[in-house]
Design a binder for these strands. Structure first.
Lengths: 193, 193
DNA sequence: CGCCTAATGTGATCCGGATCACACATTAAT
DNA sequence: ATTAATGTGTGATCCGGATCACATTAGGCG
């Protein structure tokens, strides 16, 4: 739980009393590899703050193809936000790719915290702001770039993930086929040598 | 300025005193067709709340191709948010497509309002939440769908824009060539008849 | 330790959509 | 009203990346 304090205090300081109050809204959960935190069709009870591990948020189209909407690692928040905020059934899955633990927060908890503590409303606003900017960047990337550029951008933003997850999933995140991604490497290696 | 009250009160009620205070941070600006509110390389002084008119937020790649990141109409907020929040030079343009007026707010104003009035911090958080969800939907759409599906989705979400702006710009928003979009129509009309 | 399954590389083929090129229609400008 | 500028449809060609198919390697895990 110490993680939580650090995470929040990157944005706003909390005194002990406030922190104690905040903590009452979170529950810690251990997660094993391949375990689902959320399944399509589920009610979306929680959003999750990743304490440890790697997770993917993805959906599956009519043909059974998977598309990764978000790859989350330490200190990232994740869930099917559309369903979470609107309290509808999930259209996405959240699955663990590397075991770890997450802190769970209900929508009610989030709203209560925001209403009771101006600081926490501020915290969530700042987090959302960052998330919004990051998503907008992803939109511009998807609109305009080649698989090559997408991969380079990804490698720059998340060098650690390159090591920790398989290329297949990176391809699904980039919206590129596994094969095309693989061929990029060969092309790169020959030129850069 | 009455628009502003209505807009904010969709999310949180304000008393007269609060409203008066809020108003001091906004300035109204008339905008003519084709006028730029923001130019690549500019310092990003403001974000804009659209009172009237249609605007596009777009960027231009090395080949001179345009990509529309956002199409904004009444009651939408817009600017180059990446640059606005991080106070960097703009990488995008904001241009008017149908004349109207906007309310301008500085980053300092936004932060001051949020700090002084918990209600306003709440307002911005809710707006950001909605924006985040909408952007995530756009990401899933760009990741997985055909031009056909993108167009249908767009037509469903923004039927009014279909009438008011040219196909060329819709194509740039969807990340599809003008010609491909045009051919979709022909295909549609023959089948649905 | 070796088996089975998943991850990766690589060739061959195919196809959707970009691009180029032009005709026609519509709108704006003086 | 005339001319220019911009929007729209449509054909012809081309190419990047998806798809299919298989060989190779690397990891779990019994």
């Amino acid at each position: 739980m110490e993680t939580l304090r650090q995470h929040i205090e990157q944005i706003t300081p909390l005194n002990d009393e406030e922190l104690a109050y905040v903590k009452t809204f979170f529950t810690l959960k251990r997660v094993r590899k391949n375990q689902y935190l959320l399944h399509e069709g589920d009610e979306v009870k929680y959003e999750y703050l990743v304490v440890k591990g790697i997770y993917k948020v993805f959906y599956v189209d009519a043909q059974g193809k998977e598309y990764i909407v978000q790859l989350a690692q330490e200190n990232w928040w994740m869930t099917d936000y559309q369903a979470y905020f609107k309290q509808k059934q999930a259209t996405m899955y959240v699955q663990c790719m590397e075991e770890g633990e997450v802190l769970c927060l209900t929508l009610h908890g989030r709203e209560k915290l925001s209403a009771d503590l101006h600081k926490m409303e501020h915290f969530f606003r700042v987090k959302l702001t960052n998330g919004y900017v990051a998503l907008q960047q992803r939109v511009t990337l998807l609109l305009s770039s080649t698989p090559q550029q997408r991969y380079e951008e990804f490698a720059k933003l998340y060098p650690s993930l390159l090591q920790r997850i398989s290329k297949k999933f990176i391809a699904e995140y980039l919206g590129v086929s596994r094969e095309t991604l693989s061929r990029l490497h060969s092309a790169n290696n020959t030129t850069q040598k």
